[in-house]
Write a protein that binds this DNA or RNA. Structure first.
Length: 456
DNA sequence: TACATATTACC
DNA sequence: GTAATATGT
């Protein structure tokens, strides 16, 4: 029997269009390995919602592998140590994996490469991050020119087929029982809403894509209406790599209508990855250093406001609906994400990193690049040019995007109010709070604080 | 071919 | 305001 090859899985938990599986399957026996490696220094520990998703995604991948005559080996610890142990157990000398760009993988990959012939493949982005450079040869800072340049590289390669069979090794290395990792919440079980809304795994990703394909041509008209829900809801599947952007691209490109707008969102995902590649600390450091001087609020009053925001009790119906949707389902509509982020940063004048941390813990799609880039975009602290202090008015956004039914769904205290009242109720039903800050007051405070750091 | 300056746009 | 490019010297 020939020497087995390791497929080292990270956020690429799929069989189709998975270049590491594709390459390894042709070399003989394959050992698929997932190492839970987020407890080491520098590695951001996954949040609670993401851990719930990971549990189910790993179980799904293991079932899919067993149907091919294989299985998933689970190990916990430092990636290079666990892989080296498997090498000693099985004699494997080659590791196939996909490229990942979170800063903590740099050291891990270097260490793995000391023990193995490490073959890294592309395939989790439309184009390899770092490969799109501006006329001056440097990385892009602004989305639009980046996207124009990326489009020159499209279409992405045709998706690779899933392997039909994966030869098992002569014997399997030890594998942890998934349950021992305790990725699921113990009491209280807060995951009921997640179970109702999501099907983690490759099959769930494909069915979500199939549902979206028929709606993709009307994406433009529907995507900003939280009551309608015209977005693809593929973000957690993409984050865990249960589906590739190339698969999505080839499923929707050419359908007409506003598909181009949707593809721009896939482009934004590539863009964010390119930003953290040039600035690995983007999740904790302002892109523009003058924002380091911004007088964010702190202390008991700010902490109380943060808690009200987190629990959906700000007294702004659209903000509260979004925050409760997040808590219940692990996801929030994109338009509402922008509104709640603006509210925290501008109206409450709370550091964007606090919001980023909350999203990191509660979103099933929590992604280092996306979360960092999007929060810095909301704060205006990022490297992308940004002329004014953008302060979204929650009430007019709520009206403009017809959020009435969305609010009724997530803020049941307000369910009986008519459209004329629901965005800004004059009489607050029992138990629904008054606004924790007035719009004009919050706006003025934010303008003063941001003016202090603008213009150098 | 370098470098300055004008133009355009900023999900 | 400033990134990126087009245009000028």
């Amino acid at each position: 029997m020939s020497t087995p090859t390791i497929v080292w899985l990270r956020r690429d938990l799929r069989l189709a269009d998975q270049a590491a599986f594709h390459a390894a399957a042709r070399q003989g026996p394959v050992i698929p390995v997932y190492v839970l490696d987020d407890e080491v220094a520098q590695h951001r520990r996954m949040g609670g919602a993401a851990r719930w998703w990971l549990h189910h995604s790993l179980r799904s991948l293991d079932a899919d592998l067993r149907a091919l005559g294989s299985r998933l080996v689970l190990r916990r610890g430092r990636s290079h140590e666990e892989l080296a142990a498997i090498r000693r157990e099985t004699g494997a000398r080659t590791v196939h994996a996909l490229h990942h760009y979170e800063p903590w993988w740099r050291n891990a990959e270097r260490a793995v490469a000391q023990h193995f012939d490490l073959r890294l493949h592309h395939g989790n982005y439309l184009a390899p991050p770092g490969s799109i450079t501006s006329g001056g040869g440097g990385p892009y800072k602004i989305f639009t020119p980046f996207w124009r340049a990326l489009q020159q590289r499209l279409p992405p390669p045709m998706p690779l087929p899933a392997p039909q069979h994966l030869a098992p090794p002569a014997f399997w290395p030890a594998s942890d029982p998934l349950g021992r990792w305790r990725l699921l919440p113990s009491a209280p079980d807060w995951a009921g809403g997640l179970r109702d809304h999501w099907q983690p795994g490759e099959a769930g990703a494909q069915s979500r894509l199939a549902r979206f394909v028929v709606q993709a041509p009307s994406y433009e008209q529907r995507r900003n209406l939280p009551s309608v829900g015209g977005t693809a809801m593929l973000s957690p599947h993409l984050h865990f790599g249960e589906i590739s952007p190339a698969q999505i691209w080839h499923a929707v490109a050419g359908l007409g209508g506003s598909v181009e707008t949707f593809l721009g969102e896939l482009g934004w995902r590539d863009y964010a990855q390119n930003v953290i590649l040039q600035l690995p600390d983007y999740g904790s450091r302002n892109g523009k250093t003058q924002f380091d001087a911004l007088p964010w609020r702190s202390g008991d009053a700010a902490e109380a406001d943060l808690a009200a925001w987190q629990s959906g009790r700000t007294g702004y119906p659209i903000v509260d609906a979004g925050m409760r949707e997040l808590w219940h389902t692990g996801w929030m509509h994109n338009r509402v994400r922008m509104i709640v982020a603006s509210f925290l940063i501008k109206h409450l004048l709370i550091d964007w990193r606090r919001g980023e941390q909350w999203f990191w813990d509660t979103l099933v799609d929590a992604d280092y690049a996306q979360n960092s880039v999007n929060w810095q975009w909301s704060a205006g602290s990022g490297i992308d040019a940004n002329m004014f202090v953008r302060i979204m008015a929650p009430l007019s956004q709520s009206e403009m995007f017809g959020a009435g039914d969305y609010i009724r769904r997530w803020v049941p205290e307000l369910a009986s109010l008519p459209d004329s009242q629901i965005h800004d109720p004059v009489r607050r039903p029992d138990g629904y709070p008054r606004p924790i800050i007035g719009h004009a007051e919050g706006r003025a405070r934010a303008l003063a604080a941001f003016a202090a750091v603008k213009g150098k």
